[in-house]
Write a protein that binds this DNA or RNA. Structure first.
Lengths: 197, 197, 197, 197
DNA sequence: GATGAATGAGGGTTCATTCAT
DNA sequence: TATGAATGAACCCTCATTCAT
């Protein structure tokens, strides 16, 4: 008699083990057998719940981005003003759940695969699009469209730089300093825009 | 007498082939045999001029960073004012020689190895240190130290974000747009600082 | 459920194939692929059941020495007098199971690795120690300790010479002639010792 | 203008370097490049003075055995009685020049190649033949032929066992202890033979 | 559902040998 | 005579994947 409902459990186990291994071993040393060992299952199981290693990696990237997204959405719902919405997006991208040692390390590993892995590139595009969209939409209510576009791009790129640096430095990322840098950029740009009017 | 003086020639050939392969095949598929094939030599030659694959990769990273550095230094020499010096550093980091499709792709590949490759991490730290130092030093003559520090960090992180995005997008990087973003950030910060006085 | 209990079977298969290859191809040409081919399995399997080639070689040496030891122990159990015990040790070291064309060839190959392979040296030391101990203990009951020591050493060294010669000559070792030589040595020494009293 | 008469010098350099490497690195790690490095010449030179690595190894074995032989011959010339001649042969095989850490290590390495290297086997056979011949001839004048044969074999095999043990133990071989063992064997056998008459 | 035994292609690396100089 | 650049085959080993159980 087969155990029922194991699928979501096993998938999550393997995805978590993949994230952990990306952080601990790096992409090159994240093998199927290491992932399954960390998940406490056999190697064969990976191909039972995923089509292969590539599929597992893609699922991991999606799961991670989905977590991040949900956090941002939750924060956006609580935001009352456009400014609060911008800050909600930034805060969501710096929340400890995602902006962690494991998170940034895994994400850097994914980035490096994007240029050659079409499936991962697709996920990456969606994430970038969502981030830009969220920022643009909120900023649009504070400044003209062209400025909103420009500032959104600046914030998004700076956010990428922040994640990258966090991954390169290792250790627990400093969310406070990161937030400071972004808010500083935001304030400066908004002030300059005000002045031009 | 054997052929003499082949070492620098072969080393450069292999380094160039490595850069090309990182761009074309990605890090995972950059194998010794692919590198040597592209360089038009046998696989054995790699171990004749380098300690191994890891050594070749490190040498490639160093060579690339050295090229970039020389470009920056050359530009710094021509700069007359502090402002020109800041712009020289930025321009050097966006010059077509380094900020190219091949360059950013290779660099992303290296970034991904940094967390697990101590040797590459060392190179990376030197580069970051140099970039921050150059920016800080020039800015120091325009604004108070604390502000110089802050703006230098902002510019450096944004520069990383820009390279990352360029690598993720693929194709020829848009240096003009990148410069715009950085100059915009710089001007905005300098203006804000002026106002506070 | 996968096939269970394959480990001891496969290990023995591979160890036997290693012994055969050492005899047939010599140490230098005993490669993982030749061993696995002879065992009728893939090359990968070697690293499934052993840490690597070195581990397999060590395991082979241990298995061989263990076989030899068990034979000696069995014979020692049947021996009633000290003299019978000495002969039991010698006979065990000349029994067809170990003192065969394959056995002596493999053993010569191992000897040659001992000076540079710490792991194998360890095994070798244990074997030598056991041989000396067994001989000394039995002789101790026939002659004074100093003589027992001396005769044991003579027998052990002669045994090594016999195995070495057998390996160098090739073909089926001549156990009868070897036994003759050893018994001759033993008798001569015992007689001389008697006379001195 | 070519340097003349380099051949014997270079050959000897390479042979000495080979012996040294066999002792230091073992057979498996005695490569052409290590040998030539130790001899202070280029790798190509080996194939200039020898047909290849195998030829160099054979030449090394021959040179070593030739040295040993000359030492024995010199001692035999000085021997006045049959007994002195037996002892001369034994002493020659235990003289520090050959019976050294380097010598026994190199010799063990050669032994291991004998079963699969016809050329080396040939050299080995000559050496063994010479040793047996010398011993037999001297003993023939002291005891009946059958006994001379038997004792010569015993001494020769024990000598092999002694060299083998010395190689396995490492460090400087103990010639005195070895001589003791052989003389002890010789005396015992001669005494027993006397008695039988 | 789950195992882990088994495969075999492909990885980096070493090495004896050749050859232009 | 002597060099060392260059080759390419063969080495050990790792790995994603498959499959009988």
């Amino acid at each position: 008699m087969p155990k029922l409902g194991m699928e979501p459990i096993r998938r999550r186990q393997l995805i978590d083990a993949t994230l952990a291994s990306l952080h601990e071993n790096g992409f090159a040393d994240t093998t199927v057998s290491r992932i399954s060992a960390r998940a406490g299952v056999s190697t064969g199981i990976v191909h039972h719940y995923f089509q292969g290693k590539g599929d597992l990696l893609e699922a991991t990237m999606r799961a991670f981005s989905s977590d991040l997204r949900q956090d941002v959405v939750r924060r956006l719902k609580r935001a009352r003003t456009p400014r609060e919405r911008v800050e909600a997006v930034l805060a969501g991208n710096l929340a400890p759940m995602s902006f962690s040692a494991v998170g940034v390390a895994a994400w850097l590993a994914f980035w490096a695969q994007v240029p050659k892995a079409v499936r991962l590139a697709r996920v990456q595009n969606i994430i970038i699009g969502r981030l830009h969209g969220n920022l643009r939409h909120a900023l649009r209510q504070m400044v003209p469209l062209a400025d909103a576009e420009r500032i959104a791009t600046g914030l998004a790129i700076m956010l990428d730089g922040i994640w990258l640096r966090a991954a390169l430095r290792g250790g627990k990322p400093d969310a406070a300093a990161a937030r400071q840098l972004l808010i500083d950029y935001l304030d400066c740009q908004l002030a300059a825009q005000q002045q031009r009017c």
